[in-house]
Design a protein around this nucleic acid. Structure first.
Lengths: 253, 253
DNA sequence: TAAACCTGTTCATTCGTGCAGAACAACGAC
DNA sequence: GTCGTTGTTCTGCACGAATGAACAGGTTTA
């Protein structure tokens, strides 16, 4: 893991940086603005944008540039490789509909979990994170559920490669405390979290343990703590999360 | 439109080609295989892969490379810019649930339509196309519905930039015939298609006309012709497509 | 056991190309 | 009209990306 190679291609990096800049700025943007933001000359930005346009990842209109919708292919085809997504997606939809809260499917990748599919409630709060945005393992319910579903030696291997930094006041930043916590939830089927990544947001998660051909995954329901609490959270919601998790597990044969 | 610039960055192109190669091969793949496929030397492939790994778009395990789930961020954040997606997504879900067929939201980009959100039926056939994969305007119902919703001069501007090639026997390849067809459906609210892009697949579509701040879009229901036909198609399904289209239009204020 | 053949990775060298910066063109504001 | 902008083009130079061979592992073959 993590053997950072020194031989890299600089121009690819700047191209990707430019593309990311386009995506982060939520409106069409011009060459000079990008040049200032990325700190390269205008002509360079122009060349990279032309390249990205030719490849179909950027569109050009009225001296302004925007990320192209074709960027969706990369991700949609990548996640379509995951059996847990292909089989589990509809179950996430029903989980969101049944609980009327945001339901998400997470998959372990490297030392992070990545939300692979987010089903939003018909109305109300939706998660701040995006599909594809890596999240740390230790600041949320699905991450902890996944860790508890892995063999202990794999967990230590993962945790040895990351540092525990505080996101909110509720984040566990002490390694021993975290190890102990994971041991304690090892026999549980459901993991709760309260505001360890986003203040005022609670979550219920259940892991889908890895197998021969499937990566470690987890499903979760998130919501604002004022609308998701008490027995409703710990019994109703948790029960539904658990039953959907079992159902997805069963479908993976 | 289409002023292809000659000043481009070659290494960016090869990086993206390598990434696309990884995505198309549905399994983890090694350096030499990519080198053969892209026709560059192994060391070059290695350097580009290292770069893509560092940027988070490729993951490296056991001498094998795979596209990273983080590729999802690009597309998910790009489509989140579209008001029609943010407001219409749930409606597409209900359309798919109500008809128990695949329902899709398309958006016009350059001279293509791009599926931005696909809701699959609880069981049964799902479209062959991926979210983000550009489709020609003239081979399917949503494309034609969009053209019929645009001012005629814009349609001719679009069609002047593409060539009509035959995909299946049902594809309209004659420009005059296509122009006439579009004129004929101009007053209709619903457009049908039968196997013009995929054999044996029929579709019903309704356009969401462009406005000041929203691009031209369309919604559609697709299915296999043996299970989607006759009065069921032309009345039941069409009616639901229409009512959802109206609802999305209304939500866009 | 050892040699032949796979991998993926590293390395020096050389050639090509991506880069900066200035000049250009096209538009808008004052 | 002129001075701001903008995006685009162009040229020379220097840096860096590509080459192709050598290296380090592992697995198969004799």
């Amino acid at each position: 893991m993590g053997t950072e190679s020194s031989y890299t291609v600089d121009s690819t990096e700047t191209s990707l940086t430019i593309l990311e800049t386009l995506i982060e700025s939520n409106d069409p943007v011009g060459v000079t603005a990008i040049a200032e933001s990325v700190e390269v000359s205008k002509s360079v930005v122009h060349n990279h944008l032309s390249t990205l346009c030719n490849q179909g990842y950027v569109v050009h209109r009225d001296d302004q540039y925007e990320p192209a919708l074709e960027t969706l292919t990369l991700g949609s085809r990548t996640r379509a490789r995951l059996p847990v997504y292909r089989n589990g997606r509809k179950q996430i939809d029903t989980l969101a509909a049944a609980t009327d809260r945001a339901a998400t499917l997470f998959v372990l990748e490297e030392t992070n979990i990545v939300p692979v599919y987010i089903a939003e409630p018909t109305d109300g709060w939706s998660p701040e994170f995006f599909e594809g945005e890596p999240l740390p393992l230790y600041t949320n319910a699905p991450g902890k559920a996944i860790m508890a579903s892995l063999p202990p030696e794999e967990v230590t291997a993962l945790l040895d490669n990351i540092s525990l930094t505080e996101i909110t006041e509720a984040t566990i930043t002490d390694r021993e405390e975290l190890d102990l916590y994971i041991e304690n939830i090892r026999d549980e089927e459901i993991v709760f979290s309260k505001g360890e990544h986003y203040n005022g947001i609670v979550g219920v998660a259940a892991a889908i343990a890895p197998s021969e051909r499937n990566r470690a995954a987890a499903i979760a329901v998130h919501g604002r703590s004022d609308r998701l609490n008490g027995r409703h959270l710990s019994e109703d919601i948790a029960g539904q999360v658990l039953s959907i998790a079992n159902s997805i597990r069963a479908d993976l044969t």
